[in-house]
Design a protein around this nucleic acid. Structure first.
Lengths: 194, 194
DNA sequence: ACATTTGTATACCGCTCGGTATAATAGAAG
DNA sequence: CTTCTATTATACCGAGCGGTATACAAATGT
């Protein structure tokens, strides 16, 4: 309508919004095109299928999220600062893009043959790889996490996700404040398994 | 067939199995009754609707899980032992009932209007309440977690879930061993935010 | 001015979905 | 043997699903 050529972007945005609320299987193509103010052929023109739309949604939102994560670990020699930047990317992205993190939350711990999970699998693996790499490098400088890299990675992602999930449900921004990051950093880099 | 009156139990079992693999919305009633070796009217005779079946699945499996959790915190004066029992319930249940924990994992961090999430909401809240109660009581005896009960609860559930999720994906039983519990206990009761 | 490409709308399709009307069956009680 | 109740099967339904054939409008290049 007003935005002449933005139908593609609008569709991606509306799809994410609906997927995050009702799940991929729970959202119909009719709902998506209604929300976007277009018709079905328009959607199929751009994305070919409902799964194609999902793939583009994941590519765009996961893509920039993972880019930010990867950028945060480009200076791994300063471990505490990198840890802060890493957690900050999570919290900032969650705050800026609630719908994406809500959708991501429903996917993160998932497993099985669920359509959305299968499509998101590669991104989840990539995220895990970035965090694992960080803790592997951190273990070279900080003795007391050596040998516990795997557990650190699992625990870090789990705690971050649970914290963000609690924030999304409560709206309490204190949960994702810098202070929380300081505490987590203390816990993970120095206080862990001590 | 052989089991004359077990159709009800068989249906619940098969439904859980399918829900955990393909999600609630992704599983059709036809698939469920096929897997159970019965027909649709049988299912509707027992459960009234697909959501009724879901409600019974959740009630049975979440029910016994939450009972075990509640039982584990009945002696809260011995905090370290209670912590061990609590984590043990998670790990043991996950090991004994993979399908339930797989299904639960997809629900835990969820939010929104998803059918399965709405049905599971009360159980998730009850679980959270049990853990919160534990850390509240623990804070009365252990100084350095005082004031951080909420964060402890979030971090505990998040770490446990992420650990179990990693176990479910890898099959590596070392992840949910007693040794992991000892490490987590050390981290949560004494090493945290120190 | 005109052909071509790109994007959008109307109207529709086949299929699968959750759910049901009806009736046959089996076991228990008398 | 009969009757009643609980359980199961056959066959089907309307609705909504993902997806599309067709045609038209609006730019774009020449």
């Amino acid at each position: 309508m007003v935005d002449s050529k933005d139908n593609r972007q609008t569709l991606i945005h509306c799809a994410l919004e609906l997927f995050s609320k009702k799940g991929f299987d729970g959202t119909s193509t009719a709902e998506i095109v209604d929300a976007a103010g277009v018709t079905k052929p328009t959607m199929y023109h751009y994305f070919g299928s409902k799964e194609g739309l999902l793939a583009d949604v994941l590519s765009i939102y996961y893509g920039s999220f993972l880019d930010a994560l990867a950028k945060a670990v480009t200076l791994p020699e300063d471990i505490p600062l990198t840890f802060f930047r890493l957690a900050k990317v999570y919290f900032d992205t969650a705050q800026e893009n609630v719908a994406f993190f809500r959708f991501r939350a429903g996917l993160t711990l998932r497993d099985g043959e669920d359509t959305a999970y299968i499509a998101a699998k590669k991104y989840i693996a990539e995220e895990s790889r970035i965090i694992t790499d960080f803790f592997d490098k951190a273990a070279q400088h900080i003795g007391n996490i050596r040998g516990k890299e795997t557990l650190c990675t699992i625990s870090f992602i789990g705690t971050i996700n649970a914290t963000i999930s609690a924030y999304l449900q409560s709206g309490n921004e204190a949960l994702i404040s810098d202070e929380t990051i300081y505490r987590l950093r203390q816990q993970f880099l120095y206080g862990i398994y001590s």
